[in-house]
Design a protein around this nucleic acid. Structure first.
Lengths: 230, 230
DNA sequence: ATAAAAAACTGATGCACATCATAAAAGAGT
DNA sequence: ACTCTTTTATGATGTGCATCAGTTTTTTAT
């Protein structure tokens, strides 16, 4: 398997547009049985191991979905607005959150009653088919990430994440990074010190620019080569 | 996250019983548009990157689903009979296999036309809901495995795999292992030599017995402790 | 039964990365 | 402004595991 940025991503290409597949009645049902909750930057939306009674839809903001250590956290995805969270709780017999979710920026989340969501899934095959596709995309991406995390060494893993952040999340070569070095280390499965050292290498080699929170990818091709060569 | 064998598994608890949710007509459609193909031990069922036009149902046998290196293969799941394969190809725009699949034993696979499968998904919400649950279970497991592979060290990862093989695949403390040491290394993301060394340690410590292909778990509790402590 | 090939094993060496210790810089709160 | 806390940075040391280079055992083929 040869993967560079695109296939090893922690986020999604397509925003979720699944609600347009609902009938007016179903949409009304969703809205009337849901609540919009606002979170500030850094707050926890849900905690691994707690009971899941909602499917969540990020209407605004940026969150991280992560497994809690010890020895350290592992960030599964960085999810921006217009995406669903907590779909794994649909699995019968799986009524607990497998992961924690917290916010990087101020975030608004629509909490949808899981029973209502399930009911609509059962009665609306097109909607159900769309959800199935979303889950499949997520699985496909997690395979790419599996490969990145287990087969590549540090520089390659960090290159993957930088490319992903640039392409999928911020959709620009330059961006203000709301993640700390420690977050990057939870994404790339290495120590914070190693992230810092490799970032410095990239900077010294003129592959990226980096000052405080701002990051610019200068030599994307080089980054892709590093990603490919592990 | 604290995981031992159960949550870090490469195989599934429940056999797939989704076809009972089909109408007679739909079942007939599946059967008439499918073909049963027999593979010998060691043969390749599908190759990563090739076009996927079928959903596969393992009627008999044992297979591995794996990403191909370089630098080395990564086994995603070990899948026994009565399970579906290739569901990821359902993702629109994803008509290529993300992984290769090959057999450990003589295997019979029913090849189901993907268009027929999709059609039934769209028209039968209960079936679609069941498939969605299967995908969700698979995602949940891959999270556990993510954690195992990225956060635990060698002995813990191997303990996880041994526990999984015992519980999920062979459903016994003693079993004949059709996988080579090299396969175990592709499952645990370490070198073959390391697998051998750790297996020897386990044997010297009377945690397992091992002679040629036969493996017996002697001290399961100890294995679980090793799994937990990384 | 025997040769050939593949898999299992063993030891010596090297290296990527974690860990530890400590300092500098940036951000947050008053 | 200034303190206090958090984050970033950097060097020194340690280690888990890969790699390499062999030997032995097991399996396969004839």
């Amino acid at each position: 398997m040869t993967t560079s940025g695109a296939e090893t991503c922690v986020s999604f290409v397509y925003e979720v547009s699944c609600f347009d597949l609902l009938t007016n009645e179903e949409r009304e049902l969703i809205y009337s049985s849901s609540a919009l909750v606002n979170y500030k930057k850094g707050e926890i939306i849900c905690k691994q191991g707690s009971f899941a009674s909602n499917i969540m839809y990020v209407e605004k903001g940026l969150v991280k979905v992560y497994l809690e250590g010890p020895p350290k956290d592992l960030i599964l995805t960085i999810t921006p607005q217009f995406n669903l969270l907590g779909l794994q709780a649909l699995f019968e017999g799986n009524n607990k959150f497998l992961y924690s979710i917290s916010t990087y920026t101020d975030t608004a989340v629509r909490m949808i009653d899981i029973q209502v969501f399930k009911q609509i899934l059962r009665q609306n095959p097109l909607f159900s088919y769309r959800i199935l596709n979303i889950l499949n995309e997520s699985t496909a991406q997690s395979y790419g990430r599996f490969f990145s995390l287990t087969q590549k060494q540090g520089a390659g893993r960090l290159a993957d994440i930088l490319l992903c952040l640039s392409r999928r999340i911020f959709k620009a070569d330059s961006f203000e990074l709301p993640l700390s070095r420690s977050d990057l280390s939870d994404l790339t499965c290495m120590s914070t010190e190693s992230v810092i050292r490799i970032m410095k290498e990239f900077k010294d080699d003129n592959i990226i620019e980096n000052k405080n929170k701002s990051v610019s990818l200068i030599d994307v091709q080089r980054l892709e080569r590093i990603s490919l060569n592990g």
